[in-house]
């Protein structure tokens, strides 16, 4: 059963305990300065954004069909059946295509290091694998961040909008964005306020490149055949010319002997 997170910003009080729990879980530094940073970085995998009295979390959406995983040439990033999108630093060669490709610009890089790693929220894969909640969901005092089965959470999110249509923007962010994600967001103000684009594709991003890549197996034998054929035809003329020349010469030779 695939897991997911539901973050309901109307329940969030901006205490940032999720930030702190995330830092502990991922062995990252955390202090008041870092708490003040309003963006994700190589040392901050989730950020609670503040606009007036509204809050919104930013974190890796752990997409159902992640662009980052599809573009990684060495398969360092993987979508697991349970939901988390994991990263294996020992495979990574640092091409940073994942950073370019992610529609939410989530992956960050350790620019200052000599053996840099890509850093992002991976939805606590070790905890999730042993049946535990993510660190952020476990600590959340109000239940604004909730962990559970993906289908159930999605239904619950829709139910909340249905029950309180005036309170929410009528959209579960992550339900259909880039083909669906494992993080759902609910908000009372437009998602754009916090930099979440709603004009984003509803189809999985990997389709865009796969449509092209999938032609390669046809292209290679056909192309090879075509080029070989052209070679054969264009050189056939030389062969004929040469054979005729040889014939003539042989005939002359024979003629000379007789």
């Amino acid at each position: 059963m695939s897991k997911a997170l539901l973050y309901d910003s109307t329940m969030c009080i901006g205490c940032k305990q999720c930030e702190q729990a995330c830092a502990e879980q991922n062995k990252l530094p955390y202090d008041d300065n870092i708490a003040g940073e309003q963006f994700q970085s190589e040392h901050k995998f989730t950020a609670v954004l503040t606009r007036g009295d509204k809050f919104m979390r930013r974190l890796c959406m752990n997409c159902q069909e992640p662009a980052c995983a599809s573009v990684c040439p060495v398969g360092a990033i993987k979508k697991t059946a349970l939901g988390p999108v994991t990263y294996d630093a020992s495979k990574c060669m640092g091409c940073r295509y994942c950073m370019v490709a992610c529609p939410f610009s989530v992956p960050k890089y350790e620019w200052g290091k000599l053996a840099p790693k890509v850093r992002k929220c991976t939805m606590c894969p070790d905890r999730v694998a042993t049946g535990k909640q993510t660190a952020c969901a476990e600590i959340c005092p109000t239940g604004a961040t909730k962990f559970g089965d993906r289908d159930a959470l999605l239904a619950e999110a829709q139910q909340r909008i249905h029950d309180n249509p005036d309170k929410y923007v009528n959209h579960v962010y992550g339900m259909s964005e880039v083909g669906g994600t494992s993080v759902f967001l609910l908000s009372s103000v437009p998602f754009e306020t916090f930099g979440y684009r709603t004009d984003i594709s509803k189809d999985p991003m990997p389709m865009l490149t796969y449509r092209v890549l999938s032609h390669i197996p046809d292209f290679v034998p056909l192309g090879g055949m075509l080029l070989g054929g052209i070679w054969w035809i264009t050189h056939r003329r030389d062969e004929v010319a040469l054979a005729e020349a040889l014939e003539r010469e042989n005939r002359e030779k024979r003629g000379g002997k007789q």
Partner: peptide, 16 residues
């Protein structure tokens, strides 16, 4: 790690 694509395949990746 530049040689990694040799043994770690991801045929869905254009970069690969």
């Amino acid at each position: 790690n530049i040689w990694h694509p040799l043994i770690m395949w991801n045929p869905h990746s254009v970069m690969f």
